[in-house]
Design a protein around this nucleic acid. Structure first.
Lengths: 127, 127
DNA sequence: GCATAATACATAGCATTACTATGTATAATG
DNA sequence: CATTATACATAGTAATGCTATGTATTATGC
């Protein structure tokens, strides 16, 4: 599985059609990354990268985390590490878990529909 | 198959998290709708709605078609209908076909990755 | 013939969301 | 102590739809 979506897409116009493809999915992806356990910022980045080859810049992540927290979907706390830097841990609130579920379901339907639309293109190529 | 994504999402903030989910996919979807045959504007809308439950407003469609044409991915021509209104037909240029393929492939990878991230959420719910 | 409705396309202002560049703070290392 | 690494934060900018509205042409009914 290769990393098809990163920040340096190679389209002609704007060079970023791939970036647009993933815009709007990031909140959902970030909520999902926190489903199974609480994580601190850079752990979220690593989880996304490892679990779904989704590379997000730090400057993108933190405003989103901040926004989700302001919305009551996440809670956070500062933890002084026994060794190393203090870290800000995030976890899903009950509202956050509900949102994550809603989004996961919507994503499933949406992606299935869109993939169906892509089939003729991929089918021709495979021939 | 129900229409999970339309313009009146029901989230709390901004009410539009679902709209964001599909932003960025529309160019690809529109290019895909033209893969098998040329269509005029409202036919594109209907094709998207019928093939993938994707509802786009006319005001959204035409700027995108215009943009794709400016970019050399589409070509268009006015056709006087034998009965009814004149219509502007669109079809993919060779560059447009290449773009559609690239996007379809990127989409496949991207959506597979993201769906993997969603599995724990959906798995828990199904239990 | 005229007014209204339907069809088809177009556009401008606005809202939203990342991306990019840059910065602050703290701990670790040489 | 200076530099590097880790961790978090933010402001300006770019891109893309959404919403509201408008223009143009054809069809319909009175």
């Amino acid at each position: 599985m290769y990393n098809a979506i990163n920040s340096n897409g190679n389209g002609e116009r704007g060079q970023h059609w791939e970036a647009q493809l993933r815009k709007g999915c990031l909140e959902m992806a970030i909520l999902a990354s926190l489903w199974q356990s609480r994580l601190y910022g850079l752990e979220v980045l690593r989880a996304l990268s490892e679990k779904s080859q989704l590379e997000i810049a730090e400057g993108t992540l933190y405003p989103i985390l901040s926004r989700l927290k302001a919305e009551g979907l996440l809670q956070s706390e500062w933890v002084e590490a026994e060794a190393g830097h203090p870290r800000k841990y995030y976890w899903l609130t009950p509202a956050g878990r509900r949102r994550a579920r809603e989004m996961a379901e919507a994503w499933t339907a949406f992606s299935t529909n869109l993939s169906a639309l892509m089939q003729p293109i991929l089918g021709v190529k495979q021939r």
